[in-house]
Amino acid sequence: MAKNSIQPWANGTGSNRMTDAAYQRWDKSHGFEKGTASSEEANTLWATNSLVASAFGQFAADGSGTDVTTDMGRDQLVDAFKAALTQFINMGTGVPGSVVPVGSPIPWPKDEAPKGWLLMEGQSTDGFPVLKQLYGDRLPDMRGQFIRGCEQGRAVLSTQDDQIKAHEHDKGSLSTSEAGGHTPSGKTAPAGEHFHNYDRQTSERTEDGGGFDDGYKKRVFNEPAETSVEPAHEHELVMEAVDPHIHPVTGNTGSFGGNETRPRNIAFNYIVRAA
């Protein structure tokens, strides 16, 4: 573990320094008066500043892995602090307690991902070892997808197709309104001028042998015939009267809805911290 050599001044028990209450009452706006600074006042001032410097140095050493010493240059200390801050906000190693772990999907209101992030469009995780460890060979394609909390018995990162929960609709008592007693009636459609074909029965004489007064036989048979031509007309239809009644309605309702099941929503892109 990297060390931090910047230690707080006069931080031990019983140190020669002012109490916090006395320090708060002390007028610090003009600094020490010439020739009047006491060791207690000086120790308190150095202790306050060195405490902040020590905490800063410890953060830089722990997060960067670089030793923070009293003889390092300012630029070195700044670099160590930047590295520690990067580590803290998890730009690469997934430190517990960091702001956003690598691999976390985040809604993003732009079509381009910011630096260090990737749009989640099913692309390869090659070159991103942490993402490969979390997601496998490819990122999920989050376009048109919702995230759902993983319930017991379901695998993390498993997918589901859209679905409507099985249910029934009560048939109720749907029917037509009561029509009352009535006699259905109406007319046929006009047929226009026309005639009807039919077969008529007729007879004729054959050879001698009786049947007619003159002694000839009679032969009876059917022959095609036509009625006389009737002008265009229609036929009246009158049915037997019926009592008041209703008619039941059967069958299915018509199709309703679109091509998918979805809640009300707003579109964002999902991005993931890449490294």
Rank of each mutant, 00 (worst) to 15 (best):
V102W: 04
A155R: 07
M120Q: 09
Q160R: 09
I106Y: 04
L134K: 05
T44K: 02
V68M: 08
G97N: 10
S158F: 00
G149V: 09
A179V: 10
C150Y: 00
T36Q: 06
G97Y: 04
C150E: 06
L119C: 08
P114A: 04
G149Y: 09
T70E: 10
V102Q: 06
F128Q: 01
A42H: 00
R138P: 04
T66C: 09
G180Y: 06
G144I: 11
H182R: 15
E41F: 09
C150F: 00
K132M: 03
D67I: 12
G149T: 14
G172N: 07
D161L: 15
G57P: 03
F146C: 07
A37L: 09
T159A: 11
L174C: 10
T159K: 12
P96Y: 10
A47N: 03
G181N: 06
A155K: 10
V68K: 02
L119R: 06
G94V: 09
Q163A: 10
R154H: 13
A42T: 12
D161C: 04
F56P: 00
L157D: 12
L174K: 09
D67M: 15
Q123Y: 01
Q87R: 13
V156G: 08
A37Y: 00
K115Y: 07
P105K: 00
R148P: 05
Q145N: 08
T159E: 15
Q152E: 13
D161R: 14
V52M: 13
H169R: 00
S158Q: 09
S175D: 07
Q76D: 15
H169L: 09
F128S: 01
F56E: 09
A55Y: 05
V68Y: 06
P109V: 10
P129I: 01
M72S: 15
G94N: 15
A47E: 07
F81R: 03
I164V: 14
V102S: 02
A37V: 08
T159I: 02
L174M: 08
S38V: 04
K82P: 02
V100F: 14
A84Q: 12
D75P: 02
F128P: 01
G122V: 04
M120E: 11
G172R: 04
Q163W: 13
K171W: 15
F59M: 13
K82H: 14
E151Y: 09
G57V: 08
E112T: 14
E112D: 11
T36L: 14
D141C: 07
A53N: 07
A83K: 15
A47R: 00
A55M: 12
K171E: 06
A83H: 15
Q123N: 12
D137W: 06
S64K: 02
S38P: 00
T44R: 03
T183P: 12
A179T: 06
D137E: 05
P105L: 00
S177R: 15
I164F: 08
L85N: 13
A155D: 11
I106G: 01
N43Q: 03
G180D: 03
S173G: 13
T93N: 08
Y135D: 01
D126K: 05
S124H: 06
S104G: 03
Q152L: 07
T159F: 03
T48A: 14
V130M: 01
V102H: 04
L45N: 02
N90H: 08
L118H: 07
A179K: 09
M120V: 13
L85C: 05
S54A: 14
Q87A: 01
E112C: 08
M142D: 06
I164C: 11
V99W: 11
Q133R: 13
P96E: 12
K165A: 12
L85R: 14
D111T: 15
